[in-house]
Design a protein around this nucleic acid. Structure first.
Length: 118
RNA sequence: GCAGCCGGCUAUGCGGCAGCGGUCGGCGGGAAACCGCCGAAUGAGGAAAGUCCGAGCAUCACAGAGCAGGGUAGCUGCUAACGGCAGCCGAGGGCGACCUUAGGGAAAGUGCAACAGAAAAUUACCGCUUAAUUGCAAGGAUGAAAAGGCGAGGCAAGAGCUCACCGCUUGCCGGGAGACCGGCAUGGCGUGUAAACCCUACCCGAUGCAACACCGUUUGGUUCGGCGCGUCAAUGCUUGCUCGGCAGGCGCGCCGUUAUAGGUGGCUUGAGCCGUGUGGCGACAUACGGCGUAGAUAGAUUGCCGCACUCGACAAAACUCGGCUUAUCGGCCGACUGCCGUC
RNA sequence: GGCCCGUUGGUCAAGCGGCUAAGACACCGGCCUCUCACGCCGGUAACGCGAGUUCGAUUCUCGCACGGGUCA
């Protein structure tokens, strides 16, 4: 990935679930929070509800592929956690473009007031 | 042709562009670790699954002996090993091909057998019989199961009491590598349950790659060893217990050692796979030739198309193998059986 | 990835191989009360699935499914 690292620390995951902002659609939810660094950190989570190993791995692959494609849309300096939802089975990575377009829009919208207070 | 039965193989295929994982090669940067770019070949399964067995590998423990505990259960073989597989034997099922089978011991002992029934194991209620509560277990109802089965003789009435046939036990003889089979003899015949305790034979040290080895932070103080001080008086360690063996134990202080963040190795050439020949009924073994085929560490297969058809099931490696079990759309090949028809 | 447990009415739960499978809470009906609650009486409702052993399985054995714990 060009401008991003994978997010590994479980403490960061739980912090983002608790304090981060939320966006997404029926196929996946996204949590995000500023991380005060010049790059993004992205973590993907798939609950066991989705299915067996085949379905869970496919869900992760699709989300990663879609992120790689839409990476340039994203504003920099965020920790992002994407949680797969129940409707992801049978989808293609291109179907997730909507998710990332909406996510980037929400992120930029929430960025503006912060900039004004600075 | 229809119906069936057994075994094996396969697991959508081909192509283009971009992308992901490790490997190799080249170029550039750097003291090095490594980083960037380009290129090449390569990249999930028959069950990768469940974790039910067996091994390799690793660490710990172990003078030794016994007990306890766990497992297996027809025989012979195969195998590194197995609770697996092959062939065979016994029992059961099917017209048959063939299938199923935890299949040692109930006469070593203990226990259990509800309800019904006289009685559930050394039984006697009704009954039969007699001079006799003398003898008997044929007949009767119950039950999953009732004292070897069935028929005849016999008798006061009866009973393996006797006899024929059959089942089992024991002994002998013959065959077989053995399970076992065949024959003869023998009154020797008290049910079922051991997936109840148990007995017999054989096997098993424990823990698991989050094992373990090395590098290495943090100095809070876990393990072990040594020294000093205090206290207690028989315990502690030695796989769960006993014998046996070894040692005083506990607390505090000091010194050494070690564990804990993270990283590297372990990590893929292995009881390997394919082909042909040979031996064997077979599991399998062996000789020769060929092949090099994932090794991630939040964990690699995606996106956009084109073509073909039968329109694609179950499902993703995590130390590695050998099995078992379970899930699964279909397709192909071979051996065999029964019935019907035709020549 | 390894190891270890459990599954019984709607919920929490007892249960030597033989019962009509206890109890408690909840639910339903009735009594009590002016009414509700409390109390009393009665009722509905369960052995996770599939095989096997046994005369007989909730219980014993095997295989699945699901749920949970643990490897500071």
């Amino acid at each position: 990935m060009l401008y991003s690292e994978t997010l590994k620390d479980p403490k960061v995951f739980s912090r983002i679930y608790r304090k981060g902002q939320r966006s997404g659609c029926a196929c996946a939810a996204a949590y995000y929070q500023k991380n005060r660094s010049p790059y993004n950190r992205v973590g993907v989570t798939v609950p066991k509800k989705i299915g067996g190993a085949v379905e869970r791995n496919r869900a992760k692959r699709i989300i990663r592929a879609a992120y790689r494609k839409n990476e340039l849309l994203m504003p920099l300096g965020y920790d992002i956690v994407i949680v797969a939802g129940g409707k992801i089975n049978g989808m293609k990575s291109t179907d997730l473009d909507i998710l990332f377009r909406r996510l980037s829009k929400d992120m930029k919208k929430s960025e503006n007031p912060v900039l004004r207070t600075d």
